[in-house]
Nucleic acid binder design. Sequence first.
RNA 1: GGCGUCGUGGCCAAGUGGUAAGGCAAGGGUCUGCAAAACCCUCAUCACGGGUUCAAAUCCCGUCGACGCCUCCA
Length: 465
Amino acid sequence: MLKIYNTLSRKTEEFQTLDPGKVRMYVCGVTVYNDAHVGHAMSAIVFDIIRRYLEYRGYEVKHVMNYTDVDDKIINRANQLGEDPLQLSARYIADYANDLKSLNVLPATANPQVSKTMPLIIQFVEGLIEKGHAYPAENGDVYFRVNSDDDYGRLSGRKLEDMQAGARIEIGEQKENPLDFALWKAAKPGEISWDSPWGKGRPGWHIECSAMNLAELGEQIDIHGGGNDLIFPHHENEIAQSECYTGKEFSRYWVHNGMLQLGGEKMSKSLGNIISIKEFLAQRSSDVMRMLVLNGTYRAPLMFNDDTLDAAERNVERLKSTLKPASPSASGLNAGNASTLDMAVESAKTNFTEAMDNDFNTAGAIAVLFELSKSVNTARDNGANADQLQHAQDVFKQLAGVLGLTLEEKKGSSEQEAQVEALIAERTEARQQKNWKRSDEIRDQLKEMGVTIEDSKDGTTWKWS
RNA sequence: GGCGUCGUGGCCAAGUGGUAAGGCAAGGGUCUGCAAAACCCUCAUCACGGGUUCAAAUCCCGUCGACGCCUCCA
C-alpha cells in the first residue's frame, strides 16, 4: 500500500485515487525568463521519480507541468533585451524542455501556458466575482476576497488574524483587505495585455494554475506538487480560488519537495547563488544529479556541494559496476550460489517496493540497489556466466530505471576511441613482453586523456572517467 | 514575532516503541607485474535535560541549534 505525506494534513496517508488506477498530477513548473538552475532540477527530478514509480505500480498518470510565460519578471527582462515577452518566454520554454531531457526527466503529459489559457482564466475570474469571492477595483485590478473563504490558510497553517499584523497594501492597490490578492492586474502603459471585462490587463500569478488545472485535469485532482516555497502564498491561493469556484475539494494530496541548499542556504534566483542546469551538466552527469536527490528525502533540504556530489558520483560508478558483463571464461555458478542470487533478486524487488511505498523513500530504494549490486558482483566473482547474470541484471536495470537512472557510460568521438583502442593494443603488447615501464607510461597517458583502464584475465577494459 | 520542517558515525543519509539500512571517506585483507574495479573485514547508541514505558533514536515536556515560509521563488 502506497503512502504519501500530505502537506495539507501534515500526515502520511494511504494513497487512494479519485478514479481507480488513474492519477491526475499537477506540478508547478517554472517562470521562463532565464536559465533554470539545479534547484529546479531537483524539483523536476523528484516529481519525475514519483511519476515513474506510480507508473511502475500500474497507475496511468496524467502529469501536467505548466509554464508561467506571462509575468512581471518576463516583461522586465524582455524590455531589457528589447524582445517581445512571449518570444522570450518561448525561447526559455524550449530551453527548459531541453534541460529536462538532459536530466532524463520524462516529458509531462501536457505543458499548458498562461498565454494560451486566457479565455478560461477570464471566465474563472468572472465566476469568482459572481459568487462574491472576488471584486473588481476602480483601477482595473480584480482581487480575491480572502474573508469570503472560511478555509483560507489551511494549507500553510496560518490564520487570517495572525497574518493581518504584518500585511500592508502597496501603493496603487485598492484592496478591501491587505491579504486579498490579485486575480487580474490592469496593464501599465506599454505592457503586454489581453482584453477583459475589466479592461486591458493580465492574470495574477495564482489564478493561472487554477485555470490550467481545470483545463487539463478537471475540477478535482489527485496530486498537486511543487517546491515547499510555494506553499504560501501560491498554493494556498490556488486552493482558495479553485475551491471557491467549483465548490469541491481541489487536490487530494499536496506534495512538496525540500529546497536545494548551497552553502547552507536555499539556492534561488533572488539570492543569486545559482548554478544553472547547463553549468552542472558541463561538469557532471545527469545520473550524479539524480543520485544526489535519490540519496536523500525529497521533502528535506538537499545538501549540494563538492563533497556530496563526489559521493554521488562514486555511488553512480558503483551501481554501474553491476552491469559489467560476466567473464567470457566463467565456469558457471554452482547450484547453491545460483539460488543465492535468485533469492537476492526476489528480495530486492520486494524491498524496493516496500521502500518506495513508504512516501517514496528513495534512500531506502537506493540501498536496495546497492545490495543487489553486491549480490550480482559477488556472483560474477564466483564465476557466474552471462546467462546466470542476465535476469539479475535485467531486474537491476528495471529498478534503476524506475528511479530514472540511466547508468550509461560516457562516450567520446569515434576518433578519440580509435586512439584509445590503439594505445591499449600497444599496451597489451608491452604487457605480454612484460615491459611494465612502457605499459605504465601508456596507462598514465590514457589517464591524462580521461580514460580509466582495468586489467583482468580476459583482457583490458576501459571507460571515460 | 507567527507558521512549518528538522537535529543519527569524519561526510551524505534510512530507520518513528523492542537494543542502529545503505553509500562516501578511512584502515586492514583477497585479486593484480603494479594499479584500477570488484569482493571480505573494521568503524555510531542516535543535539542536550527531564518524563512515560518491562523496553525509546523512535512517545510527551523543556532547552539549545539549523533550515524553509510569512515579499518574487522549484
